[in-house]
Nucleic acid binder design. Sequence first.
DNA 1: GTCTATAAACAGATAGAC
DNA 2: GTCTATCTGTTTATAGAC
Lengths: 221, 221
Amino acid sequence: MSTDREEPARQRLTRAEAKARTRRLLLDAAARVFARKGFAGASVEEIAESAGFSIGALYSNFGGKEALFLELMAERGLGRVSEAAQTLDRHEAGTGEAAAELGRLLVQVADKDTDFAPLQAEFWLYAVRNPHVLDTMAAALREPRQALEGLIDTWLAERGAPADVPADAVATVVAALFQGLVRLRRVDPDSVPEELFGQALQWLFSGIGAPPAQARPTDQD
Amino acid sequence: MSTDREEPARQRLTRAEAKARTRRLLLDAAARVFARKGFAGASVEEIAESAGFSIGALYSNFGGKEALFLELMAERGLGRVSEAAQTLDRHEAGTGEAAAELGRLLVQVADKDTDFAPLQAEFWLYAVRNPHVLDTMAAALREPRQALEGLIDTWLAERGAPADVPADAVATVVAALFQGLVRLRRVDPDSVPEELFGQALQWLFSGIGAPPAQARPTDQD
DNA sequence: GTCTATAAACAGATAGAC
DNA sequence: GTCTATCTGTTTATAGAC
């Protein structure tokens, strides 16, 4: 009998697993190609070939180019904010160690994983151009940012910052700064040295802890 | 003789001026369409029609789609950094007024001129994907950033910051922060209130002026 | 200088073989 | 489940009329 209808796993790979593997390879290839050519500039043929499959396989696993892109976006659209949060969590605030670690994260995202930032930019552009997706992205972004916010809360308390400092605002500033630095570093590495992110955070948190250096204790109202 | 070969300006519009006008209209239309559809997603037909011309007019004025895009990039790729610098220049540092003005700039760029940020993102993506253009962009970016740097220098001196604070690093941080906030605001306006940019700058400059709130006077070495 | 018509290449998506 | 072949619409770019 050449039919092997109950073999638990001949070498590896059940039918469902094979399909899952194909999907995974296609998604990874899509991430590469979308990052390098952009959403509109990428062709399904190039994606399929880059994954080692044909166009047909792509269409049998995804609704089409747009569906593939959206699934990718849902999978890794969070922008690696959680990673940054973990990094921050692992070290004491304002330590040289934390700054060094932050610098490594910047280098990793800006220099090593060269597809990351362009892909995120594509996600952002797609969202901005498709209001429905924009809402989804806003919602998805809130979750990791709140994690960051929690960390910053602790951090601020440690530093004895005034209780009325809004941690969510600080979290937003930190996230925006990181994204901005990554992009600038891609264009002009010399202008964004490794230590700049950590340095900037030290400035920021010092400034939050202490009122303006030049007179004026309260600025509210 | 029906030839009017020396008429200074019949109503308006010499030949050269008419062509210049066409170029201008095409460039403006291109900015709109590239911002809304992306470089690859935009078609020369849509650009031409959006400007009120035909495809032929476009090709008679520009080498093609890419040449048009590059000319646009050279024209307005500086990213409005100079505007920010002027805004900062017009007011005292750390004033409520300056903060308010900065907020207005953020709103203007993020909410009002809705094509601006996406177009800049397209420029950045194109540069990242075309190394030759990337160098050009890095060079173009250095100029306005140095203007910002000069301002910050003065600002720091006013606040009595330590002389060893590198103004170019601060300028980079300010630029990165602004870009990051604009992009975040497009996705989730509630997370980036109008005052946040000014607020963040106040924190930042306070922190630069004063050493870390929690012990440790020098962190160097 | 701008327009209309068209050429030539290429895209996304589908149908049927295996 | 994946591949090959193909259909259909669209794209950039050009040639020639006006």
